[in-house]
């Protein structure tokens, strides 16, 4: 019989697109958020939020203005401690440890869980000193130059600034300043990078660079990003949490978590009508 070898092949393993990998694959929980509510005064800004954030993934928080996205992300490194009226209830477990336990030092928390803000906020110092600042404060002064270089490389900024490290950081473009802030956050060797609208003040090209950077950085870091740009979440995030607003009987508005799932699911087949309305632009 001829031809019998033509089809006699090992079963083909379908090279599934990376995006289709089930998110149920082995993953390590970094944050376990349980029944978290945050209030400023009497009004809860976010109410009863529970979900887990996983290691080496980009998790996006999306939702309309006022849904508590920023309030939420700030609970992950205790930035809300700095707001006197903020009251945090429920649990934020970081590797199983209560982030809000009395013995926990918020400075150490922020070292492990760095943050980048909407507007680039470099110090009015040299590029080098911006990145070295946290290292000096934390006493990580050995190999200072190497550490600074490494952080700048990770932030894809080294080639742009290697010959002008002593120049003022304020002379950099907006996109470069934001990458400098990312380098500054990375220099102290955090595990998590929180990004609150990191590209909303940048032009499309600088935005694209930041997005590419997230894609690269997630190999080494866990990233949580708040964005009001849905397409940005779609592009960069592995998992997406959709927050929305609930109007309370007294007319006050409070943020709540509506749906949390693999990003591809959120953007192709969301389970909740409110998510569908938001991602299709019919609400918010």
């Amino acid at each position: 019989m001829s031809g019998d070898t033509i089809l006699n092949v090992a079963p083909i393993e379908i090279a599934q697109s990376r995006e289709r990998r089930p998110v149920t694959a082995a993953r390590e929980t970094v944050f376990d958020i349980r029944n978290l509510s945050v209030s400023y005064g009497k009004t809860p800004a976010v109410k009863d939020v529970s979900f887990e954030i996983y290691r080496n993934m980009v998790t996006a928080i999306i939702g309309p203005s006022g849904c508590g996205k920023s309030t939420f992300i700030r609970t992950l490194n205790r930035m809300n401690d700095l707001v006197p009226s903020a009251k945090v209830e429920g649990d934020v477990l970081y590797h199983g440890q209560d982030l809000y336990a009395s013995r926990v030092d918020p400075v150490q928390v922020r070292r492990k869980i760095g943050m980048v803000f909407q507007r680039p906020n470099p110090f009015p110092k040299s590029i080098f000193d911006n990145v070295a600042w946290g290292l000096r404060v934390l006493g990580m002064k050995d190999n200072l130059k190497d550490r600074v270089q490494h952080a700048l490389e990770q932030a894809a900024l080294w080639d742009d600034v290697r010959h002008r490290l002593k120049k003022s950081a304020l002379g950099l473009s907006g996109g470069q300043q934001q990458r400098l802030c990312i380098a500054r956050a990375l220099a102290v060797e955090p595990e998590v990078l929180l990004m609150d609208e990191p590209a909303s003040s940048l032009d499309p090209i600088a935005t694209s660079r930041i997005e590419d950077l997230m894609h690269t950085l997630k190999r080494d870091y866990t990233i949580v990003i708040v964005t009001h740009n849905m397409q940005q979440a779609a592009r960069v995030a592995d998992l997406t949490a959709f927050f929305s607003l609930d109007v309370l009987p007294d007319g006050a508005r409070t943020g709540l978590l509506v749906e949390y799932d693999a990003t591809e699911k959120i953007f192709t087949q969301p389970s909740d009508k409110r998510t569908e309305d938001y991602v299709t632009g019919r609400f918010g």
């Binding site: 083909i12 379908i14 090279a15 599934q16 697109s17 995006e19 289709r20 397409q231 779609a234 592009r235 990003t263 591809e264 953007f267 192709t268």
Partner: peptide
């Protein structure tokens, strides 16, 4: 199976990468 995998890959790419 290959066909479906490609189809799904394209669906997700359109939804996420515009």
């Amino acid at each position: 199976r290959r066909y479906i995998s490609i189809e799904q890959g394209i669906e997700v790419l359109l939804a996420r990468q515009t």
